[in-house]
Design a protein around this nucleic acid. Structure first.
Length: 379
RNA sequence: GAAGUUGAUGAUUCCAA
């Protein structure tokens, strides 16, 4: 039982869900841990419907499975469902922390603070979550105040503080923290500093930090790849990509969009054909986007049709593609085919009508939304 | 001995640059 469950987790981590499912199916008996491990696997690959089905059919739940499902809904923009899990179960520290993160992701920082205030016990994750919520929403004063009030701080807290300084454009203070106050670093803290330099348009400094810290490779490389992709430097991106020792789905997406951004569509296609299964869904989405951007809506649709796992983002990208191409009836059709819709889907449909001289239909669409969807779009 | 929550990075709407 234990070793099969370990195997499920291992496959799930690598995005090999078919394998994980196979192991799960062949188990003579299962427990909550095995169910949850598989659920998390689907959730992390963005396969929400499969995760939800597992959650519904599993014989029992505990804090682990509830937290996992709550987070899965959050990452797919389904805050309502996350709230439902939260409010219909007994209070649990980790579930509260996850709910705070969910609210923060939806931009509802004050509601996250309300959860924080209601918690009987706070741990480091609770403090860090609220700190990050302030930092990400540009509420610097509150972030700093909370940081100083925390019983103790770890590298997560320090990195969040770094973001807080960045959000108010205080690069000097961020440097002082990164090179001075912080006593240790990991891939994410270095990646944060890289993108901070990139935001202040100092690509040289970004590269310098990267060169000094290559031992934290994957996260730092992705961060630098993103810098080059956005700044139209496909050659430098290629150098980074080829020097990497491991790649995740994001690395592939970044490299593809570096080519796409610079108009090198054939190079993008070439790379796309070499994409490993782990990155297949993300890469295909990037290609759909690249084709739509360059007016190749037919190719975009073809690529979309060959995908066997469609994330929420991929549906939205395709929808936006039809909008840009002026194919409104296709857009509307796709919108109704989508298994679920998040704020981005509604926004894309609205934009499609608005940009094609039919703003009144956009208004109709707007009134079709229910209140929570409208709130999400407004947010 | 196995599973969940927090920090950086990308693609989808609007705006800005």
């Amino acid at each position: 039982l234990v070793s099969s469950t370990t195997l499920i987790s291992a496959y799930a981590d690598k995005g090999l869900l078919e394998k994980a499912q196979e192991v799960f199916d062949s188990m003579p008996e299962r427990n909550l841990v095995s169910w949850t491990a598989l659920l998390v696997g689907y959730a992390q690959s963005g396969r929400l419907s499969e995760a939800a089905t597992l959650f519904r059919t599993m014989p029992e739940h505990n804090e682990y499975s509830r937290t996992a499902m709550l987070t899965a809904y959050t990452h797919c923009g389904q805050l309502d469902k996350a709230r439902q899990i939260f409010s219909s179960n007994p209070v649990d520290q980790t579930v509260c922390n996850a709910m705070m993160a969910a609210l923060s992701l939806a931009g509802l920082v004050d509601q996250a603070k309300a959860v924080f205030d209601s918690m009987p016990e706070l741990d480091l994750v609770s403090w860090n979550t609220l700190l990050a919520a302030y930092a990400q929403s540009g509420r610097f004063a509150e972030a700093k105040q909370l940081f100083d009030a925390m019983p103790d701080q770890d590298i997560v807290s320090w990195t969040a503080l770094l973001t807080a300084y960045a959000s108010v454009g205080n690069l000097r203070e961020a440097e002082r923290i990164f090179f001075g106050a912080m006593q240790c670093h990991d891939g994410i803290s270095v990646a944060a500093m890289i993108s901070l330099y990139a935001q202040s348009r100092d690509l040289e400094a970004a590269k310098r930090v990267f060169d000094r810290c290559e031992r934290f490779s994957l996260q730092c490389s992705n961060s630098l790849l993103a810098v080059y992709a956005v700044n139209d430097r496909p050659e430098e991106a290629k150098l980074v990509f080829e020097s990497m020792e491991e790649w995740d789905a994001l690395s592939w997406t970044l490299m593809l969009s570096a080519y796409a951004h610079s108009g090198q569509l054939s190079r993008a296609e070439q790379l796309f054909s070499a994409t490993p299964p782990l990155a297949a869904a993300a890469s295909a989405t990037a290609m759909v986007w690249a084709f739509s951007q360059t007016g190749h809506i037919v190719h975009a649709k073809q690529t979309f049709d060959t995908m066997d796992q469609r994330s929420q983002a991929s549906w939205n990208v395709m929808l936006a593609g039809f909008g840009q191409a002026g194919q409104l009836s296709e857009a509307r059709k796709l919108f109704h085919q989508m298994p679920c819709r998040d704020a981005g889907s509604w926004a894309s449909l609205l934009a499609a009508y608005a940009q094609n001289g039919q703003p009144w239909r956009a208004i109709d669409v707007f009134y079709e939304m229910n209140a929570s969807e409208a709130a999400a779009v407004a947010g």
